[in-house]
């Protein structure tokens, strides 16, 4: 579906974060956080509430300014990468007004704006991208609904569809699984695996540790800084998790699997 980005051929990492430090008015939220992410892999971001997961995403998108550190996406600065539609971001909660008079179709079409001309007149290819994205999250039937007339989980899918429609090589998903039903969870997990096979890189934060085991190639454990980073099979150990969650050993590792391998 997607062409290989020329920058990948130049051997850039998809995401390169080097020693990021972020503070909110002097309160440190993240320090010395480094991460390299290759093409075609899914990386899980795990940490307790307030560990700085969302802050990490916001720093990667340039929404909070790191006091130190360097970020490259596809070898480009964040602004350039955004202008080239290299990165799609779905925040933890959309701070949007749900009574806004736009339809699901309009919202997903907004994912295409960056690729359109200045006056945002959709071409046939943009329409195809929107239809395709809506199909993938199974919302095509509801495309004419106002966005406010969707349920919370359907709305989450609509915003995921918007990110898909963007056709970015890097997907940043901040807790995409909260508030969705099991069926949607499975649908989304399958979708992410497809994207990985198509060569996308996905950074995903989640509180459901079984997801990490099921489909993340890499895992980052954070608590204000990166505690451990590497292949899931090596890093995702109970000792490391105990350290991440401040001495509470989570036994979710032995919990039931929601996704068939």
């Amino acid at each position: 579906m997607r062409k290989i980005q020329s920058s990948t051929l130049l051997n850039h990492f998809r995401i390169e974060a080097d020693q990021l430090c972020v503070d909110y008015n002097g309160t440190v939220a993240l320090y010395d956080a480094s991460l390299n992410l290759d093409a075609g892999c899914i990386c899980g971001l795990v940490g307790m509430n307030g560990a700085g997961k969302s802050t990490f995403f916001k720093a990667l998108m340039g929404f909070v300014r790191p006091s130190r550190g360097k970020i490259r996406i596809n070898g480009l600065s964040v602004q350039q990468a955004q202008r080239e539609q290299a990165v799609a971001y779905v925040p933890q909660s959309e701070g949007i007004d749900c009574s806004f008079p736009v339809s699901v179709w309009d919202v997903v079409m907004m994912g295409r704006y960056g690729a359109m001309n200045l006056f945002r007149i959709p071409r046939e290819s943009d329409r195809q991208a929107v239809i395709h994205a809506l199909e993938r999250v199974e919302l095509l039937d509801l495309r004419n609904r106002p966005i406010g007339a969707l349920s919370g989980g359907q709305r989450k899918r609509a915003f995921l569809a918007r990110a898909i429609a963007q056709r970015a090589s890097v997907l940043l998903l901040d807790e995409p699984f909260t508030g969705v039903d099991i069926r949607t969870e499975k649908l989304m997990a399958d979708l992410f695996l497809q994207f990985r096979n198509e060569g996308h890189s996905i950074l995903i934060s989640t509180h459901d540790l079984s997801h990490v085991r099921d489909f993340c190639d890499l895992v980052v454990l954070i608590n204000k800084t990166v505690l451990a980073y590497g292949k899931t099979s090596e890093v995702f150990t109970s000792e490391n998790l105990t350290m991440t969650f401040g001495g509470v050993p989570p036994d979710l590792l032995s919990g039931p699997t929601s996704i068939e391998p």
């Binding site: 929404f63 539609q85 971001y89 701070g95 949007i96 736009v102 919202v107 907004m110 704006y113 960056g114």
Partner: peptide, 9 residues
Amino acid sequence: FDPTHARSI
């Protein structure tokens, strides 16, 4: 509607 998304693209 969504300034965050506007910035992110």
